[in-house]
């Protein structure tokens, strides 16, 4: 039986997103829906998020008007689909420091946050380089860093240095250095508690946007094709993808890209009355399904 119930919860989307951004290389391949989502885990006395999403109040209109991000709903509405309130969240793993992944720290007042140390160290270093190097620090919101400082002052911000097993029981974090960002992190949930059990899941952050990053587009000649956005290297993205895939015995569906629209057909899912997908990855003992 699973230790943690796991859901991927959509909170916004870009309906027509160029596929060429999701994979490095293929141009003029049309568009796909790009959902925005975070991951909710419940079990072992903890209620956990992987990433926070962003706060629509700050720049939602700008994202909607200029970039086509639509149907945003805040965490109170989104988490309610699984009977959870923002105040219930006890831990948050932040995969990287972009605004759409750590832009809502202030909405989870009782949570402890986990971020890779190198994400902060190298970002601070890059900030000192000057405006002509701003590509290296783009996607960061000064308000998010200030909120992180406030959380740190309250003892609710933990910096992790590299890989660490059992940060919580059965949950490991891994550093994917110099990839999408300087200190991107992916999260492994060993849901039967054993080291190499079959019920193991990897939550990839933005290291991959779609399953196609792990398989390529030709089923007869599979290959790893990295995403197109990186301050690190495509080389490192490829090898971090390979490591994630290897850790789940090569079973592609167990490496979860939250931006993948096909999660809703790969796992049991439900469309809410707000037009958002709830995807159910696993159910712990005693937990009722939220998609049935």
């Amino acid at each position: 039986m699973a230790d943690y119930s796991i859901w991927v919860l959509e909170y916004a989307a870009v309906e027509k997103f160029p596929f060429s951004v999701m994979m490095y290389g293929p141009q003029h391949q049309g568009t796909r829906k790009l959902p925005y989502a975070y991951v909710l885990l419940k079990g072992k006395g903890e209620t956990i998020l992987i990433d926070t999403g962003y706060d629509h109040v700050a720049f939602g209109k700008q994202l909607a008007d200029a970039y086509g991000v639509s149907n945003y709903h805040g965490p109170r509405e989104v988490l309610a689909e699984c009977g959870v309130r923002p105040e219930d969240i006890t831990r948050v793993f932040i995969t990287h420091a972009h605004f759409d992944h750590m832009g809502a720290i202030h909405l989870f007042p009782n949570a402890k946050f986990y971020l890779q140390k190198s994400e902060l160290d190298k970002w601070v270093w890059a900030l000192a380089l000057g405006p002509e190097y701003r590509f290296l620090t783009g996607g960061g919101d000064p308000a998010d860093i200030v909120r992180a400082v406030e959380a740190a002052k309250e003892g609710r911000m933990v910096l992790i240095d590299g890989d660490q097993e059992n940060v919580l029981p059965g949950i490991d974090v891994h550093l994917a250095a110099d990839t999408h960002t300087y200190g991107s992190m992916y999260v492994t949930v060993r849901n039967d508690g054993t080291r190499n059990g079959e019920d193991k899941w990897v939550f990839a952050g933005d290291l991959i946007y779609t399953y196609d990053n792990l398989t390529g587009l030709d089923p007869d000649a599979p290959q790893i094709v990295p995403i197109g956005l990186a301050v690190g290297s495509q080389h490192n993205l490829i090898f971090s993808s390979a490591a994630m895939l290897k850790s789940v015995g090569g079973e592609v569906r167990r490496v979860i890209p939250v931006h993948e629209d096909r999660l809703r057909t790969t796992f049991p899912s439900r469309l809410t009355d707000k037009g958002l997908q709830v995807v159910e990855i696993a159910l712990a003992s005693g937990e009722k399904s939220r998609v049935g």
Binding site: G138, G139, V231
Partner: peptide, 10 residues
């Protein structure tokens, strides 16, 4: 305030 060009949405 944010350079959205390095964010996947933008």
């Amino acid at each position: 305030l944010i350079d959205f060009g390095q964010a996947c949405c933008a």
